[in-house]
Amino acid sequence: MRYSKLISKKEFQTYFQSPAAYIVMVVFLLITGWFFSSPLFLNNQADMRSLFGIIPIIYLFFIPAITMGLVAKERSSGTLELLTTLPVNDAEIIHGKFLSALGLIAVTMLFTLIHLFTIIILGTELDYGPIFTGYLGLLLLGGVYTSVGIFTSALTENQIVAFIISFLIVFFLFILEYTLMIIPSGVAGFFQYISVGYHLSNLTRGVIDTRNIIYFLSLIVFFLRLAVVAMESRKWK
């Protein structure tokens, strides 16, 4: 755990030493801001729901972009050898990198709180419960996408390849919800269960159901485990 913390601290600092993280964050905030403020002016409607609707879609690009280099870049520049020959094991490296990316997501989410303050200033009646669980859901969803991103980053030394594969995986998890009508009813229930939207919708409605939490956490654990295996595979090739 100590090593994971050290690695996440270093990775987190590295994010803010390069312009890439700032650019991605600014783009993220511009898009979410536009989706929040256009209904505000057009419909005189201010709520967080439009925000919670758009963020999972932006995540599809945002998270693969911030995770694609985490392992792939170490591999292509050779620093993976430097890092893994320090007294740290592969799981600690993966967990550290996971925490740093999740930290960046959390910071970005903090900036979206400005929309919440806008609503408060406008004096709209607010139900804080769904907002809290909505953010919780987005963080858990971010965790799932991040673990997918780290897994694909650990598979290759090419960041673009890592980006594309992780985009495909998270897009698959995301789109399942919308394909239910064309799927035979026998397996539709199963497909619904593995789609992220189904589990997220409970949380954005303000319901904390342990089944949803367990779904997110087990996906995170699953993909992080795969990432560790992908890292360890170098030893046996």
Partner: peptide, 22 residues
């Protein structure tokens, strides 16, 4: 004892990879 051994060793890998943005 991979960790113990790595703790004991100082290693300069081939081509000297470093975190160049630090």
């Amino acid at each position: 004892h991979s960790r113990e051994i790595r703790q004991m060793i100082g290693y300069l890998p081939e081509n000297n990879p470093l975190y160049t943005d630090m």
